[in-house]
Design a protein around this nucleic acid. Structure first.
Lengths: 346, 346
DNA sequence: TTGTACGCGTTATCAA
DNA sequence: TTGATAACGCGTACAA
């Protein structure tokens, strides 16, 4: 099992110096046509490729982007990665993925692992546990070491870096307004605890829409789930909670959920109770997922444009990496959401 | 924006040699307690971490695994990655992901990018285009350069390497047998063109089950889709094809589909025609996905155990990487499938 | 107990 | 036109 061929080996075989080989391969004008051809032919024969690691060491850059996401088995994050990959590869960068699994410790460890020279910069979405603990030292440390970070979707203001987000409040406000315009007056909200930034913002959108339309807030209609991750247990608990929500609010005629699974679950419960969708009750979720599209009835959702988010994030990061001087101004790009109307709304 | 601190800088600050610093940090007995403490304190203060790139170059190993998959926005592949990550991180490896997007060229480019020193070995699933072209030179080249490959799910016999697969034939045979036992006699098969290995094998399972149960094969019941990827267009075409399938076979009472989306689509079409599930017609799909679980009715499927596949693949690869001598025997691990019965079957 | 020298693979600079 | 040398950051065998 032979090793990959190196400049040194080529040089030895051809009885020239290493630097001659190096120059010949890079078509340097310094080298005679003769040697150049000889070297290139030999290199081609043995399928020579420069060693990336050595180049990284020398150039002090790895041409690799580190991506940390809370969970990969999730359509939205998968889409984002897909977008990052697209831009990164086009601009000559690799993408390396780390999973935090919604855990603070794993997030920290994963970042340390990558920050020690493996990558040039991070693109990440903060884990729920980190958001809850509000411990952001690892981000600040990374940044102060000169490694840029771009955050997407789940971000916090405390950290000074580029960000790509959607207007969660506006997106959910539009959704709830749509329900109201469609005649709903008793709209339930299924959301997460407030430490999840996107959950909080989407809740705000719900409140604003009610307020704008002079619909009185009924806190009994709001369900805040405490989810670390979508475990099986969590789903069961979710179902029970939703059943109780329906039990104590007989007049619910609309549901807005801050993610796909909550909405699907709510539809399931409603259907079990014999409610007609969208006749008796209408539903809107929040995400990009396949579940929404293929559910029965298909679910209207606020689209997050995950792919675009990934592309924007990668562009932001690479631009910063390739900037000559330190550009101090950090950007926050807000991606427009749009409401995809399907069968769950009138 | 300061750079990461290096041994050299510490040495200079403390006015000792680089190797002294290196040894002190690694708790070498050679170094006096005095200097050791001094160095360690300083290093801690400046948050010193050895540069991975330099270590990779020196040790001639990167402690990184390259994963190439055809498509990340896909529950099964996401699950596999998740499994790979789990094992890899536990054993001190990073995971770097490349997407082939079902394209031969992208697969080749991505592999070349990573093979030049960035990683120690590959875990991959072959793209559809590659399977169609039957051009496997890039795999053989990689292997002959001493870089191990572990293939999963979509594999080919021509390549000598470790593999992790499921028994596709057996899995689908069981599924179809289940339909037969449940009383189905006119079972449609929705599959892919034969160049997709798993499609072919699953088709075989279907045929075997029919044969074993002395049910005559009706080729009109078989639909072979030519899908490069699950684009929107493809889905539309799929729906049309399925409608025609139902139109020309009035008596269909069971459907076996080689993936989730085909099955869900077929259910949708059947429901549109007013058929009761599972009363009039029963469905079984093939995969791990969320769609199946949350569909209405929920879809019975052959579970592929993607997470386990990833774990096994990573274990296989890392074991080989850490083996002293070249172990020539290659393994093919077959993961058991099992039928998850949900509401789409009796 | 500490320091020097070397090598990992590459490129840039300077000398021959 | 070619080659020697240094440097990227690290660890280690060996010398002091």
């Amino acid at each position: 099992m032979r090793r990959k061929i190196t400049l040194k080996q080529i040089a030895k075989e051809l009885d020239v110096s290493i630097s001659t080989v190096s120059k010949a391969l890079r078509n340097s004008a310094e080298i005679s046509e003769d040697t150049r051809e000889k070297v290139q032919a030999f290199a081609k024969l043995y399928n020579y490729r420069p060693n990336n690691i050595a180049l990284s060491l020398k150039n002090r850059q790895t041409k690799t982007i580190g991506v940390i996401i809370p969970e990969i088995v999730h359509h939205f994050f998968a889409k984002v990665i897909s977008g990052i990959e697209l831009v990164a590869n086009r601009r000559g960068y690799n993408v390396i993925v780390g999973l935090s699994n919604e855990s603070f410790d794993k997030e920290v460890i994963n970042m340390q692992m990558l920050a020690n020279g493996s990558i040039d910069g991070f693109i990440l979405s903060i884990s729920k546990e980190t958001l809850q603990l509000q411990d952001y030292h690892h981000f600040n440390e990374t940044i102060s070491q000169g490694m840029p970070i771009v955050m997407f979707d789940r971000v916090v203001n405390d950290i000074v870096c580029d960000k790509v987000i959607i207007d969660d409040t506006k997106g959910s406000k539009n959704a709830v307004r749509k329900l109201i315009n469609n005649g709903c007056r008793h709209i339930a909200l299924i959301t997460t605890k407030d430490y999840v930034s996107v959950g909080r913002l989407r809740t705000m959108g719900y409140l604003e829409a009610l307020y704008d339309n002079k619909i009185e807030l009924d806190s009994d209609l709001i369900l805040k789930m405490d989810d670390k991750q979508f475990s099986e247990d969590h789903l069961d608990a979710l179902e029970t909670e939703i059943e109780q929500l329906f039990a104590r609010n007989k007049k619910i005629d609309g549901v807005f959920a801050v993610n796909e699974i909550y909405a699907i679950m709510a539809m399931k419960v409603a259907r079990k109770k014999g409610l007609k969708i969208p006749g008796d009750i209408q539903f809107i979720g929040f995400t990009d997922g396949v579940l929404s599209k293929h559910a029965t009835p298909s679910l209207s959702t606020v689209s997050q444009h995950g792919q675009e988010m990934g592309e924007k994030a990668a562009t932001l990061l690479i631009n910063r990496l390739e900037l000559e001087e330190d550009e101090e101004r950090f950007q926050t790009i807000v991606i427009e959401t749009n409401l995809i109307e399907r069968e769950s709304t009138k």
